[in-house]
Computed example of a mutant assay.
Amino acid sequence: MADVAAAAGVSGQTVSRVVNDSPRVDPVTRARVAAAMERLGYRPHRAARALRTGRSDTIGLLVSTLATVGNSRMLQAIAAAASLRGFALTVVTAEGPDAVADGFARLREQGVDGAIILNEATRAAREVAVPGGLAVVVVDSPPDGRYAIVQTDHAAGARAATAHLLSLGRGAVWHLAGPDGSYAASERERGWREALADAGMSAPDPLPGDWTAASGYAAALSLPPDARALFVANDQMALGALRALAAQGRAVPDDVAVVGFDDVADAADYRPPLTTVRQDFDALGAAAVAALVARIAGEAASPVILTPTLVRRASA
């Protein structure tokens, strides 16, 4: 740091402020220090800084599975947001309360400053005591005073999808639901039911799914012959549903209009291109990391709820 300070013509304290991303450095000076750091090959020594500050500048991510597209997208978004803020990321997979408790212990052993709990893992985490002194943010959860909460307004997205299908005049909209215990799945089902109720319609029994394309295929095979509109709780299951409908000789959208949820990268290349509800995974990841950084600093973090958008394509 002394070498960087000399090369940039600033004090060691100024270099320290730049390294720690302090706002108390003007942009011109910050750029000069950054250039000197790059020229000299300077990198902060994470272990030494942890000894001095009592912080590791590492955050944990607790997730039940990375097999789903949504969780993988969130991992990518959180990793990118953490890197921009100078934090390393360590990932622990856990399913069920005992595994979550063990996951918390493993994160504490690794000296993380805080943790983000993702999607399905939040249900199990609510049954486990949060380790003292560990800042925690959850993505997709009902209100809980122990955590800062960041989420998509899944119900609003489902209402928009269902209202669009209703506007096509196809009668009742059927729903291929996500797994039991998933907060996102239950909120999407709630939005679907509310949209049907607003239209004066009863909700058919949801078709069960588990986020996978295979479950979407199996569920859609049992869609009644007179069903002409289907809202699917995620795009992976919608892919399976499209295959099942094609196997039955039912054209999309002529015979059955289909809307998914998430807007995965390949949704526009489905056959037909999928109308879906877009989640902004990058914004969710950035909001989760920002909330966690605030909690680590001892600051309050207000709940963040992001509104998704309906993307219309050829399937509905």
Rank of each mutant, 00 (worst) to 15 (best):
M1H: 14
V4I: 15
A6S: 13
A7N: 05
G9P: 00
V10C: 02
G12V: 04
G12C: 03
V15K: 01
V15N: 03
R17A: 02
R17K: 14
V18F: 07
N20D: 09
D21W: 00
S22K: 00
V25E: 09
V28I: 12
T29Y: 04
A31C: 01
R32D: 07
A35F: 01
A35S: 09
M37Y: 02
L40P: 07
L40T: 12
P44C: 00
P44Y: 02
A47I: 09
L51W: 07
T53H: 05
T53M: 12
T53N: 10
G54Q: 10
T58H: 06
I59K: 03
G60E: 10
G60S: 08
L61Q: 08
V63Y: 08
V63Q: 11
T65G: 06
T68K: 09
T68Y: 02
N71W: 09
M74G: 04
I78C: 05
A82F: 10
R85N: 05
V91W: 06
E95V: 04
E95Q: 12
E95F: 05
P97D: 03
D98S: 14
A101R: 14
D102I: 04
G103E: 09
A105R: 13
R108C: 12
E109C: 06
E109F: 05
Q110A: 14
G111P: 04
A115E: 06
I116H: 04
I117T: 02
I117F: 03
N119M: 10
A125F: 11
E127G: 04
A135I: 00
A135C: 06
A135K: 06
V138W: 02
V139L: 10
V139S: 02
S141C: 15
A148Y: 01
I149G: 07
Q151R: 15
T152N: 03
T152G: 01
H154S: 14
A155D: 06
R159E: 15
A161H: 03
T162V: 13
L165F: 00
G169R: 13
R170P: 08
V173T: 03
S182V: 00
S182E: 00
A185R: 11
S186T: 14
W192M: 01
D198M: 06
D198C: 06
G200M: 10
M201H: 09
S202A: 15
S202F: 00
P204H: 00
P206A: 01
P206V: 03
L207N: 09
D210E: 09
A213H: 03
G216L: 12
S222T: 13
S222H: 13
V232P: 12
N234G: 01
A238P: 12
A238C: 06
L242Q: 01
A244T: 05
Q248A: 14
R250S: 10
A251M: 11
P253Q: 03
V259L: 09
G260N: 01
F261R: 01
D262T: 11
V264Q: 15
Y270P: 08
P272C: 02
Q279T: 00
F281H: 14
F281C: 04
A287G: 08
A287C: 07
A288P: 02
A294V: 06
A300L: 14
P303F: 04
P303D: 07
V304R: 12
I305D: 11
P308C: 02
R312N: 12
R313Q: 12
A314C: 07
A314N: 13
A316H: 01
